[in-house]
Amino acid sequence: MAELIVYGIVLGSIISLGAIGLSLVYGILRFANFAHGDFLTAGAYVALFMVTGVLSWIGIPDNTFGSLSFGWRMVIAFPISMVVVGCVAIALDRILYRKLRQKGSGAVMLAMSSLGAAFIIRMIILIIWGADSLFYRPGLMRPALEVPLGIKIRPDQILILFVVLFLVVLLHLFLKKTKMGKAMRATADNMELALISGINTERIIIWTWGIGGALAAAGGILYGIDVQLHPYMGWNFLIPLFAATILGTIGNIYGALIGGLTIGIAQQVSTAFLLPTYKLAVAFIIMILILLIRPKGIFGKE
């Protein structure tokens, strides 16, 4: 059981990265971005393209660090993929969502458009890479370490936790200490007043998409390292992402972090009683329970 909880924390930290971005976008633009799951997929595949394509072509050595499953190529690919997906998110906003906003289309039209965008991203991935599962390093043995309480954990998974922690701290500092970060929180709080205060909200929206997309990309790569890459991986994250976001109160990034961890742990622990394929349903049931008991989430005011 302790082991399942630890695996749940690993999965939950990945969900958190996605949920934070989803919550940021939801908080500022007030619509459900159904393409967010596919940002995770895009991130994982862009990194794959870098690792197996561009970086090997340039001649970056294909080493691994100690008992980790990756080396320099991934270190380089990781931030590049975050930037690329951040730009994809911004581009979608400029091409699609901003046009709809300017026309005064409602939140549902925006959500619908994001669903279309989700499929466009996924279809492009399917056209390029096909429908099979892929690995960053096929065929690599990945031995687990034995840590106290009889928990087996792979070095990759420990690193995943540190990477997530690092990114969350970085985001926290950005939001609390920088002018742009504060303006972002102000815009999420009260967009009209932000405008009155002279904050350029369109620029804030661009930053929000960029950060949301980049964090999702990071989540996708980490999942790819931990498990595998699959064109539907992000779609399968969508329900857990929304469950985490709603549980942690929409717009609250610390709530999204806690929500993500909770959902991740619940999903992994459920595998002790249920088939692992039901993980998605577990996230869904939790979400329905939250909607029934406390629809505004743990940090929401009644």
Partner: peptide
């Protein structure tokens, strides 16, 4: 400068941060 009648503060931010936002430009 303009103070709207309602929703004229950033509720989830501190007093200090609200003033900083006033000086955003």
């Amino acid at each position: 400068s303009y103070v709207p009648q309602v929703e004229n503060v950033f509720p989830s931010m501190t007093i200090q941060e609200n003033l900083e936002m006033g000086a955003f430009i």
